[in-house]
């Protein structure tokens, strides 16, 4: 009963089957999607991220934000994603063509971020929230990212307009103020760039009632 050759063939063919089915075929179907230009408005979507947001995306990767936040909206009728305002339409493959790597995510320990740029457009909210999530979302289990900020002495001209406004228990010692480092700025630019408000032919926006 030396069926070694048969065994080897079986081992190779079984994996080859799904390699074709789940790697080659999806690459055939989705691997060369192009951005769409709306013929009425001339808007091209999606677009590559501008420089600062692209740097922020690298931080998002390096800090592992994608382990608690998804970036995919499930279609109407499957889950409550749209009802929660996480997106205006379900996500489609074309939304991700410029993403390296893709941050679909697998866990919603925190909310989905596909549309966070529309839901929270304010720099102030993002800075405050990143510095310590408790400032804006009491009871959140998101870790603070205070290491993206630095303490500076208040200058002779009084408090800087760039400083993060923090009240109560979160405020720094008198005479000091909290400034975002460039990294914090980049991360916030990235988060603000996340929007799902542009329609695609395969994913129209629902009509307003």
């Amino acid at each position: 009963m030396n069926y070694g050759p048969l065994l080897f063939l079986g081992i190779l063919f079984t994996l080859a089957s799904s390699w074709f089915g789940l790697v080659v075929m999806p690459n055939q179907q989705l691997g060369s999607l192009q951005p769409n230009m709306d013929t009425n408005t001339g808007v091209v979507f999606p677009q590559p991220l501008p420089g600062e947001a692209a740097q922020g995306r690298e931080l998002y990767r390096s800090l592992g934000c994608n382990y608690c936040h998804t970036q995919q909206v499930r279609r109407e009728g499957f889950g409550s994603d749209i009802a929660r305002g996480w997106g205006k339409r379900g996500s489609v493959a074309r939304d991700y063509i410029y993403d390296r790597p893709v941050f679909l995510g697998s866990s919603r320990t925190g909310p989905d971020l596909t549309n966070i740029g529309e839901r929270q457009p304010s720099y102030e909210w993002h800075y405050s929230h990143l510095y310590n999530p408790q400032t804006t979302s009491k009871g959140s289990i998101m870790p603070p990212y205070a290491f993206l900020f630095e303490l500076r002495r208040v200058g002779p001209d009084g408090p800087s307009t760039n400083a993060v406004k923090l009240g109560g228990e979160f405020a720094p010692e008198p005479g000091w103020e909290v400034h975002p480092k460039p990294e914090a700025k980049q991360l916030v630019e990235y988060l603000r760039s996340l929007r799902s408000s542009v329609a695609l032919p395969e994913a129209p926006l629902p009509k307003l009632e």
């Binding site: 009963m1 069926y3 050759p5 048969l6 063939l9 079986g10 089957s17 074709f20 080659v24």
Partner: peptide
């Protein structure tokens, strides 16, 4: 793709038949 998806099972089936004929499955 279509060609290989026909060829692979064909080879696999032949290998199985061959193995059976050789007595490997007894």
């Amino acid at each position: 793709l279509i060609g290989s998806s026909l060829a692979f099972p064909a080879v696999a089936l032949y290998a199985l038949w061959w193995a059976g004929r050789e007595g490997q499955l007894r």
